[in-house]
Write a protein that binds this DNA or RNA. Structure first.
Lengths: 214, 214
DNA sequence: TAGATTGTTAATCGATTAACAATC
DNA sequence: TAGATTGTTAATCGATTAACAATC
């Protein structure tokens, strides 16, 4: 399917989780005009073993050259493809309060492969306000909008109760990915949904465990 | 060290990453007054194998009873201990803008084992304002505060450049954990720091990958 | 006692690391 | 050619699953 991919498309999750870090690192090298690197060099700077780096890069094609190393721009490009960073997945924001506004303005959607395509709020009085170039649509338009534009992700910055109702509506109309800032625990009711959550965030808790024993 | 822990304290990371989900699930059962459950039941409701659940719970003590199952409140309590949810790790917020304010008011710090202990902003004019019960301190007081109160985590909601300077200051004075909303990429310069980031968030990118192939 | 369900050991599966031949 | 570094295979390590005896 992917043009440049030589090898198996069944890249394991362990590898995928390392890709964003590779990508950030290689992008920096790229920006600095460095066109060449090696598994040894990356190993020293990133803390993975050189062996692992070679195995990882080999999952999605032969971008290395024996005796030479890897071509930085090529590698960057390949990872962008794999991570879908060039895509423009539509994403909607629900809740235009302080939190919603700051997310809309601070998050670099496009460099993460997303496009913030609409903002909704239950308060119809906000319909004359704007967030960036987007008008704030009334929540009554939500179903129609989803049907037409097929967004893939929703960001929820609303209280618990409305979040619960909204999630049902969204999930049933095909939105299965959430960036959840509400106190409603989506994954309890929809184990299949892809959820990023700032509140009962798994890693945040892990963090507190780590802190405790160190 | 832990009173109730029978077994090895070297619980693997794979197990730890599952604990928050167990915890949320068991808390719900607990709230609903259910005092008893089994690995089979949890397996069906949570999507882990019953075998894995038993292995996991056994890492940190024998809370089960053959032929009966597990005691929900006991299990909840044990996981709270392990995750350090009962602790009150001090955490400071830097940047009292829209984003900072919403974080301060929306995040349930105490149920995550943290306590928001101070808010700082470079703008001294904000010193008469308050966020909840906390006054907004000038950033010039930062070093002194850290020295005295020893916070373990900092939340950054400031622009890229100041974030860079602040991170150095914080890291050097012992703050090694960050919740980063700035565009400065902490883990590039401090690979040992524990960083949660909303922007170049690893899982967010993983998400976009997932979306792409499904 | 009979049934259920744990705790634990053994078997399987997958991911990481080591080693080295291929080759630029 | 000699040196470097990949691609790839084999060895190791760790995590998950299966199986079943212990026992409530």
């Amino acid at each position: 399917m992917e043009n440049k991919m030589k090898k198996n498309s069944n890249v394991s999750m362990s590898v995928i989780r390392r890709l964003p870090r590779y990508y950030r690192f290689l992008s920096e090298l790229n920006k600095a005009g460095i066109t060449r690197t090696s598994s040894k060099e990356l190993s020293e700077k990133m803390g993975f073993t050189a062996s692992q780096i070679r195995q990882d890069f080999n999952c999605f094609g032969g971008f290395g050259q024996q005796g030479y190393g890897y071509n930085v721009p090529q590698l960057c490009d390949a990872i962008e493809d794999i991570l879908g960073i060039k895509a423009k997945h539509k994403c909607i924001l629900i809740g235009a309060g302080n939190l919603g506004k700051s997310i809309a303005t601070h998050v670099p959607f496009s460099s993460l492969g997303f496009e913030l395509s609409a903002v909704f709020d239950s308060n119809e009085k906000l319909k004359d306000e704007k967030i960036g170039s987007l008008s704030i649509l009334p929540e009554t338009n939500l179903a129609e909008y989803i049907n037409k534009e097929k967004p893939v992700m929703a960001i929820l910055t609303v209280p618990k109760k409305p979040a619960e109702t909204l999630t049902k509506k969204l999930y049933d109309s095909g939105v299965k990915s959430f960036w959840n800032f509400s106190h409603y625990d989506i994954s309890m009711d929809y184990p299949d949904a892809i959820v990023e959550s700032v509140h009962l965030n798994d890693s945040m808790m892990t963090l507190s465990y780590k802190l405790k024993d160190e």
